[in-house]
């Protein structure tokens, strides 16, 4: 890669109020662990005038758990999240997802907030400047055409955060702070199916925490990736199994296959014929996803894999 960093000013606020002020400056962007953004800066995928470094804000690094739920600060590192015993006891999908993000050294500094807001990824986007320029750039940045779907009118880059589906099956809400104060949004409503405009975060806003109600049942997270120890998901699935009076009900959320993480509509409960039920679950997942040619791995393989993982994980949770 060996491209030079662009010039920018680094702001290092120590309180949320200072951070909001710093973020209000023109062309300001947030940096937390920097494990993704610093790579993007080198590739010329962003040119912020100011980077607002959140790593000194202690208010973002708290993880509180009680009988009424759990609040995880956006600045909690993935290493801390993966090793937290309360999270492991109540929300195993979150522990498993956090432990499977990138490599161990990334997780030392990468944060929950950074992973939830992780930029969408694509074969035609995550490339050096000269590579993209020789390909006439792309719809997501500096260009007009989506090379993945040239006839379409939106960016198809794949959302690749591991934590989002794990938090979504546990009904997480996000706390967001901005110039207009604090607001909350259901995590599932935070995303939209557009690779170039995938999160509901207005200029000057930042995620401060994820808030989880008590768990409804056990959960898990599985992913496939090219490099087993360090990689973004080609496809990832979180499942939560809830015991209801009618039987077991599964909540399923997916990542890596669309431009945003998606929930799968599973209205049925586990019936007396589990084989038929899990075959239906497999089909429902295949139907829900729309993997594109955003990676070197074939979309069809990712579709079959994520459905198989979902059915297998659901079986394990019974």
């Amino acid at each position: 890669m060996s491209e030079v960093m662009p010039d920018f000013q680094l702001a290092r606020p120590t309180t949320l109020d200072e951070a909001v002020v710093a973020l209000a400056t023109p062309e300001a962007r947030i940096i937390a662990g920097g494990t993704d953004l610093n790579v993007q800066l080198r590739m010329g995928l962003a040119a912020p005038a100011t980077l607002v470094d959140l790593s000194l804000i202690s208010a973002l690094k708290t993880l509180e758990s009680s009988t009424s739920g759990t609040r995880i600060g956006a600045g909690v590192t993935l290493a801390d999240l993966a090793s937290d015993e309360r999270v492991a006891a109540y929300y195993p999908a979150i522990t498993e997802a956090a432990a499977l993000v990138a490599g161990p050294t990334h997780r030392e500094v990468a944060t929950l907030g950074g992973n939830l807001c992780l930029d969408t990824r694509c074969l035609y986007y995550n490339q050096s400047h000269w590579w993209r320029k020789s390909n006439d750039y792309c719809l997501k940045y500096q260009g007009d055409i989506c090379h993945v779907a040239p006839k379409g009118n939106r960016c198809r880059a794949a959302y690749s955060g591991d934590l989002a589906p794990a938090l979504m099956v546990h009904d997480a809400r996000l706390e967001i702070i901005g110039p207009d104060g604090i607001r909350q949004v259901m995590l599932a409503d935070f995303y939209r199916e557009d690779g170039a405009d995938y999160i509901d975060l207005k200029p000057g806003e930042m995620v401060t925490a994820a808030v989880l109600p008590p768990p409804k049942g056990p959960s898990g997270y599985r992913k496939i990736r090219v490099r087993g120890a360090v990689d973004f998901p080609l496809a990832g699935v979180a499942v939560e199994a809830e015991e209801t009076k009618d039987g077991k009900r599964f909540t399923i959320a997916l990542t890596g296959t669309n431009s945003c993480p998606i929930m799968v509509d599973m209205p049925d409960v586990l019936t007396d014929d589990p084989n038929a039920f899990f075959a239906n679950l497999n089909k429902a997942v295949q139907k829900a996803v729309s993997p594109q040619r955003t990676t070197t791995i074939a979309p069809h393989y990712r579709r079959l894999s994520i459905a198989a993982m979902a059915a297998r994980l659901a079986r394990e949770l019974v």
Binding site: L10, R12, I31, G34, T35, N38, V39, D53, S55, P104, T105, H106, E108, V109
Partner: peptide, 19 residues
């Protein structure tokens, strides 16, 4: 490029010196 920052491993190629 792994080095230790306050005793923990860090990737120096994606870490700002100022941070």
């Amino acid at each position: 490029c792994t080095v230790l920052v306050d005793g923990r491993p860090r990737l120096a190629c994606i870490t700002l010196a100022a941070s």
